[in-house]
Design a protein around this nucleic acid. Structure first.
Lengths: 338, 338
DNA sequence: CTGTTAGCGCATTCAC
DNA sequence: GTGAATGCGCTAACAG
């Protein structure tokens, strides 16, 4: 290290004012006379002063930390949300603290407690299935909180997401409308959102009298393209008549496409494939794959914006619940002779 | 909020000891008598006490924060590294602070200054092309630092990565050995690592007398599968004789595969495709795609381990530079008649 | 093994 | 518009 640490006091000394004035120059520059302000700013630049966040947090009782609690960092879906979050934070005086609950409610509680000990500026949590203890902590948290990914009946505070059930139902309807009579479901990592998508598939098929449990295959393992190939191989071996598959995400759908090609099953003539999330590559795959577009990036971005608005705007004009919706991207519409 | 904040003092009062004893029970339990320790631990649990990290940081002059400075959160490659980092941190008393330099040296310096103000436990930075100012900050940083992604001649402190040049050269040699006489290069987001890969391709082709600048197409835009389809379409329109493509990553390679299928170009009979990074899906694509496997997850995990070892082990036995290597995964070996 | 004293660097509250 | 006193919650260094 060069000299001693550069503190508020050392900047103050150099300019010939008191420390509190420098502090004000930093936080509320309009309350410092212009000439003084300029001198202080120059001194800060000269000395390379950077405020100590710990001291600031201790003295003020708050921080710029926004805690983000997600169940998985592996999952592609969350990485899009995180991109949105990081993009929105750029330029704002916030920093992100990530917590990975690994799909465990106990872990979620622990992490929440840790987050809260940091006196965060805001909290973002994935999903609506918090444990009672977690819910209570969030309800009494002295900061804005946003539940993301899903919509539900009683938001803790703010909420932004879409209906996984409806998205899956729309996709399944499309599958049936384009002629599938033996629709199948392929699912991995059966988390709450995946379960709701499955419910959307099941109910839609049942309404049409076309549901069969036997044509559904799921696993708790995380989704991969490879897993898609394997699950489809299992499924088609047992049920060769399958003519349409709804996958709980695009990785699986891509795997199914590859496996179908390998087996010379014509897509979409013999088999239509529908994914979920609409990854960028779905549109350019050969053939392109139907999917349900979801707005993951926007979800992250707007979650930050909601917190930000609440912090500065006081309150009132920020909508508490935002439905981002979804959009079916039909790409294999080969209506068969039913 | 329920009552007042639970502090060390309130725990101490409840047990009937002084605050410092509770502090010790937390950090160095072996220095507290067993019966007292147990009483303190119970009180902590009863009260739900969680230490205030800001106060701790201010008093001790250090934190558990490991700063991670990467040029992009969008890039798939970094998300694998981050997975490794988060996995390794699990169980360790560290927390991660992410910084996104957006490929800007100036931004990198700013972020470094912010990181340093937090008195981090360690620093991880991507690449070896830091600005002079950044280098100096890192060199004088009072914590272990690791440069990741690449290897280079003079490490600032520790370093873990592999040679992008050698990886690309190996892939290109394979391309030529399996019969490509009109090899092409497709690259996006030409960052320093991509540039070195391009150099590996160029030098290898030149050595074989098969390099042509005209068959190389690049763009500063970030890689996507869609971009791969477009770049390949451009390239093949201008140079129909192309019979092998080395892509600077797998997204592009996949796009090229799709575009080739669309145009009924037989892969690998008429065109061999080679990617870089060996994403999980490369092996199950139809046909599967040759790629260079790199150990991104391990890179993240071990970077944390290196820092951790340095912190506890004092120093000495931790290797300063780790070459993770790479491994060519040949998957389209159709030697043509040269 | 336990306690006392002091202070980390900053922001809050009140004076001026 | 500026400054002085005080304390945030914890830990370092020493004492006992």
């Amino acid at each position: 290290m060069n000299e001693r640490r550069v503190t508020l006091a050392s900047v103050a000394e150099r300019v010939g004012v008191s420390a509190i004035t420098v502090s004000r120059a930093l936080r509320t520059p309009e309350k410092v006379s212009p000439p003084l302000l300029e001198k202080i700013q120059r001194a800060i630049a000269d000395l390379g002063y950077v405020p100590d966040p710990a001291a600031r947090a201790l003295a003020s009782g708050r921080t710029n930390v926004i805690g983000v609690l997600i169940p998985s960092v592996t999952n592609n879906v969350f990485s899009d949300v995180l991109r949105g979050i990081y993009a929105a934070v750029e330029g704002e005086p916030f920093e992100i603290q990530l917590g990975n609950s690994r799909y465990s409610p106990v872990m979620e509680e622990t992490l929440l407690r840790v987050f809260l000990s940091q006196k965060p500026a805001g909290l973002i949590v994935a999903g609506i299935d918090q444990s009672a203890a977690s819910r209570k902590m969030l309800e009494t948290a002295p900061c804005p909180t946003v539940q993301i990914m899903e919509l539900g009946p009683d938001p803790i505070d703010m909420m932004i997401g879409f209906s996984h059930y409806d998205g899956a139902a729309a996709a399944t309807r499309h599958l049936l409308e384009t002629g599938s009579r033996y629709p199948a479901f392929v699912g991995a990592r059966m988390d709450p959102r995946t379960q709701r998508r499955f419910a959307g598939f099941r109910d839609t098929c049942e309404a049409a009298g076309l549901f069969s449990e036997a044509r559904c295959i799921t696993t708790p393992a995380p989704s991969t393209v490879t897993l898609g190939t394997q699950l489809f191989a299992d499924l088609i071996a047992r049920h060769p008549k399958i003519d349409g598959v709804f996958c709980n995400n695009d990785d699986l759908a891509l795997g199914i496409l590859f496996e179908a090609q390998r087996r010379h099953i014509r897509v979409p003539a013999d088999l239509t494939i529908c994914g979920f999330n609409d990854l960028e590559m779905m549109a350019v795959a050969e053939p392109s794959i139907t999917s349900v577009r979801t707005y993951r990036y926007d979800m992250g971005r707007r979650a930050i914006e909601m917190i930000s608005a609440r912090i500065r705007g006081g309150d009132g004009d920020t909508p508490a619940v935002v439905d981002l919706g979804f959009q079916l991207q039909p790409r294999q519409s080969t209506a068969r002779a039913g």
